[in-house]
């Protein structure tokens, strides 16, 4: 199965935990596309760096549109106002890490 890695920058009022971020994004995905859509997207949090406010998500390449829409629609994580901005999308984790650092 081919995958896409999505690098995002996080803007939030407070400190976020990786688990909360993953849960909030899953919630956003399920609210927009239902459980069937969420199962197609198979969206997971791969890496989260609170100090640089960056995260990398992984999804099925056929459901990239669903994943990106869910990321854009996210507005809150653990009660904190949050906005995620997609910085890059790539087929390899290495390329996304490199572009996030740059």
């Amino acid at each position: 199965m081919r995958r896409r890695y999505i690098g995002v920058r996080i803007e939030s009022q407070g400190e976020l935990e990786g688990r909360g971020l993953a849960a909030a994004l899953s919630g956003s995905l399920v609210r927009l596309f239902g459980e069937y859509g969420a199962s197609l997207a198979d969206l997971r949090l791969v890496d989260y760096q609170p100090e640089s406010r960056c995260a990398i998500f992984r999804c099925n390449h056929k459901a990239l549109d669903l994943a990106r829409a869910s990321i854009a629609a996210l507005k809150e994580v653990d009660g904190e106002k949050t906005a995620l901005r997609v910085v890059c999308v790539s087929g390899t984790l290495k390329a996304v890490r490199k572009r996030l650092i740059n």
């Binding site: 549109d65 990106r68 990321i71 854009a72 106002k81 949050t82 906005a83 901005r85």
Partner: peptide, 18 residues
């Protein structure tokens, strides 16, 4: 009207998929 509602044009375009 709030910075947390602002997204980049590419992110809004992703949302237009809806």
């Amino acid at each position: 009207f709030d910075r947390y509602m602002l997204r980049s044009a590419q992110d809004y375009a992703s949302l237009a998929y809806l």
